[in-house]
Design a binder for these strands. Sequence first.
DNA 1: CATGCCCCTTTGTGATCACAAAAACCAGTA
DNA 2: TACTGGTTTTTGTGATCACAAAGGGGCATG
Lengths: 222, 222
Amino acid sequence: MQPPLPRISENKNPEVTPSAHDRVYRGLRSRILYGEIAPGKALTLRGLAREFDVSMTPAREAVQRLVAEGALSMSASGRVSTPELTNERIEELAALRALIEVELASRALPRAHIALIDRLQSINGTIADVVSNRDAVGYIRTNLEFHRTLYLRAQAPAMLAMCETVWLQLGPTMRALYGRLRRTEAPQYHRLIIAALKAGDEPGLRLAVRSDVTQGLRMLAS
Amino acid sequence: MQPPLPRISENKNPEVTPSAHDRVYRGLRSRILYGEIAPGKALTLRGLAREFDVSMTPAREAVQRLVAEGALSMSASGRVSTPELTNERIEELAALRALIEVELASRALPRAHIALIDRLQSINGTIADVVSNRDAVGYIRTNLEFHRTLYLRAQAPAMLAMCETVWLQLGPTMRALYGRLRRTEAPQYHRLIIAALKAGDEPGLRLAVRSDVTQGLRMLAS
DNA sequence: CATGCCCCTTTGTGATCACAAAAACCAGTA
DNA sequence: TACTGGTTTTTGTGATCACAAAGGGGCATG
C-alpha cells in the first residue's frame, strides 16, 4: 500500500497537518464518545491502521492513549476492545459525573449570560428533533454538546477534561442504555437546568444537574 | 548497545516479564508522582530510552500515556516536560481532590475496621519521622500512602484511579510546594481524619479530609 | 553590544520488519 | 455431536532507520 521508502516527501498542503496518531486518536475517540461502537467490540491495530491509512505505530499510540483514559480496555495479551462495564463501575462513574458536573455547573452559573441560555435552549430543541428520529448516536452527541456548552463557561479546563474522560468511559455503555429507554421527548431536567440558570438559583441548578446526570444511569443498576 | 537482530530470544526468567513500555511507564510515573522531578524539567525520548535500556518505541508509548494523563505536557513541536502549573490550574486540581477524596473517604467510612485505623496511625507515625528528616520525596510518598490506604477501603477503583490522576498532575508542583512550607510535624488533619473514623463521624470525616487536601494547596495561590 | 543568519546537532515521527504468543481453524476420534 | 490434537493465521511488541523540523551556537553585520 505504501511505497517501501519511509516517509515520502509529499507535503501537498502547507497548512496545519495534524500528526497521524492524532487523526487516529480523534477519530476513534469521537466514535467511542458518541456511542458508535458497541461494548465489547474488538479492535486490532492492523485493522485501525488500514482504516485510517497509517502504519501500525500511530495506531498503537492512539490505542494506548485511549486505554490510558479508560476509553478502551486491554486484555493481558494486549488485545483491545471497548469495555463492558460492570454495574458497580457504572455506578461509580455516574457518581463521578454527578460530583464533577455539579461543580462545573455551579462555577458556570455566575458567568451565564443570556446568550449562553439561548444557545442551550437551541441545543435542547435539536435534542427534541433527534429524539423523534430515534437517532441514538445523534442523541448522545447533542446531549453532550448541551452539557459541554454549559461547562465551558466555568473556565475550568482541568475539570472539564476530567469530566470528558468519564463520558468517554461511559460512551459504549450509553449507547446500549439509551437504546433501551424508549425516549420520546427531550430530557425534562434540561428545562430545569435552563430555568435555574435564568433565575440564578444555585441550589436548584445543582439539583437539576445531579438529577439529569443520574437519571439515565440509575436504571441500569436494576 | 543492542545487537542488530531485533527481538533476541533471551527469555532468561520464565516468571512474569512486564512489557518494556510498562517498565518505563511505571518508573517515570512514580518519579513524577512522588515529586522527584522539578516542574518544567525537559525529557527526551532517546534519553529515557537509554536510561531504561529500551528502544525509542516503548519510551514513546510511556511518554504518550503520561501526557494523556496530564502527568507530562507536550509542546507543539512534540517536546515533553513536566508541567508548570498555573495558579488557576492548581486551584482546579485542589478542588477536584477535595470533591473526589471526600467522596472516597465517605465511602470508606462504613468499611473502616480497627485494623485499617491502626495501619493509618502507623503510616502517620512514619510521616512524623520523614518530616523530621527534611525528606520532601519521602513526605509526599508517605502522605499519599496514607490517603491511598484509606481510599482503598472505599472499593471504588474508578474513583481511585481518577484521584491518582489528579495526584499525578500535581506531583512536580507538590515537591516545590512542600519544600516551601517548612513543616516540622505530621499534618494535624490526619489526626482529625483518624478520630472521625474511630467515631464513625461522617460530617467530621468529610470536613477533615477536605481541610487536609486544601490546606497545603491554598497557600500557593497567594 | 545587540541582532539576524547559517550550519550542525538534537529530537520527534512514522514506516517496516522479525519474532513470539495467542487465536482460529481443521481434521480425526470417542 | 462434542472434544482433543496439531497446524496455520492473526496479532501485539519492540528494534531500527530515514526524514523533517526544531534548537543551539558561532559569526558577521548593524
